[in-house]
């Protein structure tokens, strides 16, 4: 385990096709005493009309909010990037948004979030890549690993769309390949993941 002394501080989560159901299953079991800040980017957010935080909140015990620029990523909270904007994390742990060109033909791009989060949280970061039908997120996981973070990838064989997780696995960037329903438990065992320190 490569977490820094304080343990892990944040998890960034990227998903595309089939992402809503995958996010629900990942977030639903997370306990109220989560100490990680959770940050989500979904390519499908545009279709949800800004309702993604609300849809996730229904099945999640943690507060779910839209990530607003200049506000900090908070422990025990799920922050969802707004549709149409790249979501980035600044060095001080606050969010910023951009309408810069699409990356991997998408905006928001998972790589953009992962790259900036890797620079900020380094060894304190967990990167999680879920279902999707393109290869956005692979390069971002590569950067998270290079900066000492931990990379979890949904088992491509059990993903709604396997291209995205398979791309990351094939690139050799997955520290752990996990079925969706095992991911929450795994997250909770990481150092720093819960307030109780369990």
């Amino acid at each position: 385990m490569s977490a820094d002394a304080a343990g892990y501080r944040a998890a960034v989560i990227g998903c595309s096709a089939g992402g809503l159901e995958a996010l629900r299953r990942l977030l639903r079991p997370l306990p109220e005493d989560m100490a990680l800040a959770l940050v989500v980017v979904s390519h499908m957010a545009a279709d949800s009309n800004g309702l993604l935080p609300e849809l996730l909140a229904r099945t999640c015990r943690l507060p779910v909010v839209e990530a607003e620029e200049k506000t900090p990523a908070l422990a025990g909270r799920v922050h969802v990037g707004p549709a149409g904007y790249h979501l980035l994390v600044e060095a001080d742990g606050t969010f910023s948004l951009s309408l810069d060109d699409k990356v991997n033909n998408v905006r928001p791009a998972i790589d953009v979030l992962f790259d900036s989060a890797a620079d900020t949280w380094r060894a304190g970061l967990v990167g999680i890549l879920l279902t999707g039908a393109n290869s956005d997120g692979t390069a971002g996981l590569g950067r998270i690993r290079r900066r000492g973070g931990l990379c979890l990838v949904q088992d491509p064989d059990t993903a709604f769309a396997d291209t995205m997780p398979r791309s990351a696995v094939n690139a050799g960037f997955a520290d752990h390949v996990l079925e969706l329903d095992r991911m929450a438990d795994f997250l909770c065992t990481l150092p720093g993941a819960r307030r109780s320190g369990q």
Binding site: E69, H86, L88, V89, E90, A91, S96, S98, D100, V112, D115, S116, D119
Partner: peptide, 9 residues
């Protein structure tokens, strides 16, 4: 300027 996106540019 906000650094994270500026760095990318």
């Amino acid at each position: 300027y906000a650094k994270a996106s500026l760095k990318r540019r």
